[in-house]
Simulated scan of single mutants.
Amino acid sequence: MKRFLRLLLPTALTATALLALPSLVCAQSSPDKSVRIMVGASPGGGTDILARVLADKFGPVLKQAVVVENRPGASNTIAAELTARAQPDGSTLLLATNTGQAIAPHLLKLKYDSLKDLQPIGLVAVMPNVLVVSANAPYRNVKDLLAAMAAKPGGFKYASSGIGSTQHIGGEAFGLVTGTKSIHIPYKGSSQAHIDIISGEVDMMFDSTSSAMGQIKAGKFRALAVTSPRRAAELPDVPTLAEQGITGADVSTWYGLFATGGTPRPMADRLNAELLAALKMPDVQARIKGLGGEITPMTIEQFSEMNRSEYEHYGRLVKEAAIKAE
């Protein structure tokens, strides 16, 4: 998060001014053509939840049906490729995370360029990741977990929403800084992984709060630590890893809105304006806060710079940690 706080909105170009632009959808397309928000994860996860929040807000102002289309798999890149290959008319959007935008390009051979073929629109939210275990597990804190892992070297499994996801990166970083080894079990989205965490089939997960919060509040997950520099506002009693003596494994998940590369700038500006307007709505703010997230409004230029910076940051991390697609 610190890497891009300097990018926060200093602009004189306000959402109100941008809303005066002509209607978004779509000069080139049929007026009754629906808008798709592509999601690279299964229904029920954090990306899906936020996409549906935006769809509910975008529909009335765009005066069109806005639907969420889930295309899970390949570290969120299936949905990203479909967006990259769509007509640049504003009718296909992507709610992406740093998994697909900043990590996967360094691990997978993609048929599109994540920096050139997707047009950044704006940052939606940043969520800390949280180390969770089943509520039935005996571990009460990270010290308990590490003791159990030491007693059973290589016998623990951790889940992720896919290879190259922030959950995967978080698990690898945790192993590096603690000197432990565990088996990575990738899933097609967090919601599928939750089933095996709750049953105890998989021992732990470094999930985003947006995905894990529901299970934590329902008493099905026990949160042992947040993997961010400070505690999550919605989990004030859960200490950070650093508070428990573990540093160097900080990982957060960000969610951003993208359009197809080549989308005309007036359309991109209108989408950014509608996003900024939605993020000011009290119910949207409450929903994101309830998921443990922080809202950081950005212009297109600011989000584009952040997107590139994160791409470079995770490229270095993947190389230094020798992380490879399995």
Rank of each mutant, 00 (worst) to 15 (best):
I163S: 13
L108K: 13
L118D: 13
T97N: 06
G164T: 13
G164C: 14
Q119A: 15
N129H: 14
V130I: 11
H106G: 08
A125T: 09
L115H: 05
L146Q: 15
S160L: 10
A137P: 04
A159G: 09
S134P: 04
K109H: 12
T97M: 04
T92P: 03
A135S: 14
A102M: 06
S165E: 10
A104G: 07
Q119T: 12
F174T: 00
V130Y: 02
L123G: 08
L146V: 14
G170T: 02
T166W: 06
K111V: 01
A137E: 06
F156P: 01
V177D: 05
L107Y: 11
G100M: 06
T97Y: 09
P138W: 08
A173K: 14
G90W: 05
L95S: 06
K157L: 04
M149R: 09
A104Y: 13
I169K: 12
A137G: 05
G164L: 13
L145D: 08
G155L: 03
A96W: 01
F156T: 01
V177N: 06
L95T: 05
F174V: 01
K157S: 14
Y112T: 09
P88M: 07
K111P: 00
P153N: 08
N141T: 05
K143S: 08
R140F: 01
P138C: 05
A151M: 04
S114I: 12
D144N: 07
K116M: 12
S161I: 07
R140D: 08
S165D: 12
L145N: 05
R140Q: 14
K152G: 01
S114G: 04
A150N: 14
T99G: 12
A137R: 11
A173S: 15
P153Y: 06
A148W: 03
K152A: 14
F156M: 02
G175R: 01
M149N: 04
Q101M: 14
V177I: 10
D144R: 00
F156L: 02
T92V: 15
S114H: 10
I121N: 10
Y112R: 02
T99Y: 02
S161N: 12
A137W: 07
V124H: 10
S160A: 15
V142A: 01
L95Q: 06
K109V: 12
L110C: 07
R140W: 02
G175Y: 04
Q119W: 06
I121L: 15
K152Y: 07
D117W: 07
P88F: 08
K109P: 03
I103H: 06
S91T: 15
G170L: 05
K143D: 00
P128E: 06
P105H: 11
R140S: 05
G164E: 10
L146A: 11
L110R: 07
V177H: 03
S165F: 15
A104C: 11
K116Q: 15
F174W: 03
T92K: 05
A135P: 00
